[in-house]
Simulated assay, not measured.
Amino acid sequence: MNIKLVVVGKLKEKYFKQGIAEYAKRLSRFCKFQIVEVPDEKAPESLSQAEMDG
């Protein structure tokens, strides 16, 4: 079984990184686990109607 977790942005807190590393280590016995980080994009304050329909 393969599990791919796609997340937006990067983790900054050390305790989150440690927790995820521990969880990934435990999962690795049962499946292939991969985390894919994609960059966060800032949304504009207001969108035009054309951008909303998009």
Rank of each mutant, 00 (worst) to 15 (best):
E51L: 13
C31Q: 09
K10D: 14
E37G: 00
S48H: 02
K42F: 09
V8E: 10
E51P: 09
P39M: 04
K42G: 05
V8D: 01
K14M: 08
F30D: 05
Q49H: 06
Y23C: 13
V7S: 03
E37D: 04
L27W: 03
Y15I: 12
P44V: 07
E45P: 04
P44Q: 09
E51C: 05
K25Q: 09
F33M: 11
S28L: 02
E13Q: 04
G9V: 09
Q18D: 13
V8L: 08
E37H: 04
E45I: 03
A50S: 11
F16N: 15
M1R: 04
V7G: 00
F16C: 15
L5N: 03
E51W: 11
A43D: 12
C31I: 10
L5M: 07
D40W: 05
D40P: 00
K25R: 07
K10M: 09
G19S: 04
A43G: 02
A21T: 12
K25W: 03
V38P: 01
G54L: 04
A50R: 07
S46D: 11
Q34W: 00
Q18C: 00
M52Y: 03
E13I: 01
M1F: 07
Q18Y: 03
E37F: 02
Q18N: 08
K25H: 08
V6R: 06
Q18A: 07
S46K: 15
I3E: 07
K42I: 14
V38F: 06
A24K: 11
G54E: 08
K42S: 12
Y15Q: 06
L5I: 08
R29Q: 13
E37K: 02
G9L: 10
V36H: 10
Y15A: 06
V6L: 02
I20R: 01
V8Y: 03
G19Q: 02
Q18R: 06
I20P: 00
L11V: 02
I35Q: 07
N2F: 11
P39R: 06
